[in-house]
Design a protein around this nucleic acid. Structure first.
Lengths: 224, 224
DNA sequence: AAGTCAACGATTTTCGAAAATCCTTCGGAT
DNA sequence: ATCCGAAGGATTTTCGAAAATCGTTGACTT
């Protein structure tokens, strides 16, 4: 007697999703220690799949392992935010360059569709119901993923994906930061237009500036 | 009663090392299925730490998991070799640029020392005792790691490290490939000289060519 | 009073077996 | 003959408890 549906995944996979979500939403804060007893209660399963989930999360940088001393949520720092941003500008910038060069009509369609979905929700920042905001985050990620989806390099895409997950932790801080005077909507439209116009270097440059602005805004959190 | 020394690591860590080495050396070939029974026999421990090791190895791309169907060694392909090489040229090229710009005297010393150790073993290719060859591989990796060690970006260094591990699997095929007419020693010296001369772009370009040549040589394996 | 070390409690890590899942084989129906 | 489906074996996945490890407390020495 179990609750596993048909050919679905494993319990370890469910634990991975649950714990990652708990970290994303702040249920476990940066630096907080993760005891197995708590996690077993949260996930409703034995220690083995929880442990496997933590191993995966650690490989992706969400958690940190101290041998025989247990796991804890990875801390956030201004230095790391800057580092991740710079690396993203490098990797995702190049990925976009390649995608704009190689992308076919299907890629254009994916990008247009993803942008349309994103644009229907005007702003992803403050004063928004959390359900709607969650939706915005998902569509925002989908738009950026669509942009580089035609780059032709699985390795580069995987790197960009992992960096995006890391950056997401920082982006989530912005729920309470004053939105400043920033036209995120416009930046996305510019990205879309340059990509469709096959302005290879222009699109890559716009993307780098886009990430640079986001990082600059988030940086206010670390020097009070 | 256990064989764990002092404050040493965990069994899972030992299993990780053992299995990774077994894959590196070809004891388990590409695509080969990895049954827990075999791995438990190899590592001399229970299923739990072996499973954790496989989870880590999968996160790094050495193995592949098919839910409820078990793990197997990741396959090699020409397409992936090219993809990894291109991504390496991008990431490690930029890392070297940064390191050459920012590196201090300590960095120079590390690079010179690592190059000296590498140069004492003339060639890492064919007709070499495997123990010596293993040593060459280690020093080769250390030299490349030293070159970029001053780039100032932990994220980028981690990416380069993982890519290097992946590329290592391909490089190991070259034990049986005819060494062609290639001056690896000279390429390394050129890399060293340009780095020390602070020829930022020149060093990065030399590194990209270095990896490009290696990949071109290894490509002979996939089209018979 | 400060320092050392053994014993204890809390927690991680590992084990051996049970449960779940997948693949194959074999019997029967169309 | 072919296709469908159930039983069996092999293997992965998970469980619950035992073993190992770390941090701390408190007695004892200098």
């Amino acid at each position: 007697m179990t609750q596993n549906r048909d050919g679905a995944g494993t319990r370890a996979g469910d634990a991975y999703d649950a714990i990652r979500q708990a970290i994303r939403t702040g249920h476990f804060g940066p630096g907080e220690r993760l005891r197995f007893s708590s996690l077993q209660a949260l996930c409703g399963m034995s220690v083995t799949p929880v442990r496997e989930a933590l191993t995966r999360l650690t490989a992706e940088g969400f958690t940190v392992l101290d041998d025989h001393r247990g796991y804890s949520v990875a801390r956030l720092s201004l230095a790391e935010l800057r580092d991740i941003t710079a690396t993203r500008q490098l990797c995702e910038g190049e990925a976009l360059r390649l995608a704009v060069m190689k992308g076919d009509a299907d890629w254009e369609a994916r990008v247009v569709a993803a942008h349309h979905l994103l644009a229907r929700i005007p702003q992803g920042r403050e004063g928004m119901p959390s359900v709607m905001r969650e939706d915005w985050e998902a569509r925002h990620g989908a738009f950026h993923a669509a942009l580089i989806s035609a780059c032709g390099s699985p390795t580069l895409l995987e790197i960009c994906g992992k960096l995006s997950l890391q950056a997401d932790r920082y982006r989530r801080m912005s729920v309470s930061v004053s939105g400043a005077a920033r036209d995120v909507l416009g930046e996305h439209r510019e990205l879309l237009e340059r990509a469709l116009a096959r302005d290879t270097d222009g699109a890559a440059e716009a993307l780098r500036e886009h990430y640079g602005r986001t990082a600059a805004m988030l940086a206010n959190f670390f020097e009070p």
